[in-house]
Design a binder for these strands. Structure first.
Ligand code: FES
Ligand code: FES
Lengths: 177, 177
DNA sequence: GAAACACAGACTAGATCGCTCCGCGTTTCA
DNA sequence: TGAAACGCGGAGCGATCTAGTCTGTGTTTC
């Protein structure tokens, strides 16, 4: 994939569901099934978000995740950093230090400070990060909310409720389904 | 490596040498040896820069590359696009279309337009691209030029000249060295 | 005490990256 | 005239990364 991996897309989409259902803990399996993606993969994602303080986890049956703070105070940069970890846009290999003209006697000025090319790349990365930091989960939820009809939110709550019911039913009809 | 690969670092550094020696054609081997990097790898880089119209190539003995236009009119974005090709920062997989709540009957509004998350990523990518487009090869050459002593430019020209001489000498003493 | 949860770690298939090697056509120059 | 130095394309290779699976361990609910 590209620089921002599939984990970021999965993670942010999951967090949007959590923002929609702030009163309920959703398990990683709920979130995966809800979106039709790999449960194992989503399960590997959330410990990172929890360590970054974006979500809080609760253990045991009926456990799961919920947002650690308001969606308006979670930026896309928070999520990207949590999932991707420290991952530079550009990885300078200090080419300049191998110049044949110097022939072994590397002058101080040649490796002093950061290479001008590297500096330009760092500026580009910073521009990207500032753009990501300027968008919050709430912004995105608003955009989606304006597109979705009013009935959608209810349908989601019903789906989540249906999950809990299905679990209870499974306990009642154990071995038959 | 990261999103911007080693080819970009090699490529831009090479182009800086070409900007310094605008009157001479430098071969890909010259440029590689000058910087102590792999000649084969640099040789694979330059056809891309030539197709993008950043350098012009000349064939045969004494051939090589030179800048197609002034360094002030070559941006870092030009070089990155030439070497990396079309490579999105974020590769949306249209997760939203798989939502289990819809259960097969995907409503129009759900996939209408670009996903809000994807849109935010495109803005971040655009911010990065604008930053890269704002820096030219000449800008970087100036920065380097201010650091390097006056003698450096002469040393480079001498090194390049020495290369041509070495080739002539090799022809004269064929088989002995 | 079983089921549903979180979480850590080993593992795999496939893609990509950095790099090499080879063959072909072109140009120069002894 | 032919060898050497060029550009250029394609095949291939080892290392690394990605997306995803499969354990296993500990915790909470019912
Ligand atoms: S040495 Fe890495 S960008 Fe110049
Ligand atoms: S569907 Fe790809 S980012 Fe939303």
């Amino acid at each position: 994939m590209a620089h921002l991996t599939a984990g970021v897309e999965y993670g942010i989409h999951c967090l949007l569901w959590l923002a929609l259902e702030r009163d309920t803990s959703l398990s990683s399996r709920d979130l995966a099934d809800l979106q039709g993606v790999s449960p194992s993969f989503v399960a590997k994602l959330f410990p990172k978000l929890e360590k970054a303080g974006i979500v809080v986890a609760s253990n045991g049956l009926r456990g799961g995740y919920r947002l650690a703070r308001s969606a308006a105070r979670i930026t896309l940069l928070d999520v990207v950093d949590a999932i991707e970890g420290p991952k530079p846009l550009f990885d300078c290999q200090e080419i300049r230090g191998r110049c044949a003209v110097f022939d072994g006697a590397l002058p101080r000025w040649a490796t002093n400070g950061v290479c001008a090319i590297h500096a330009a790349m760092l500026r580009a990365e910073q521009a990207m990060r500032e753009s990501l930091a300027a968008t919050t989960l709430a912004d995105i939820a608003d955009t989606v909310g304006r597109k979705a009809p009013a009935s959608f939110s209810q349908a989601v709550t019903a789906w989540v409720g249906g999950r809990t019911d299905a679990r209870s039913a499974r306990r009642g009809t154990r071995g038959r389904g």
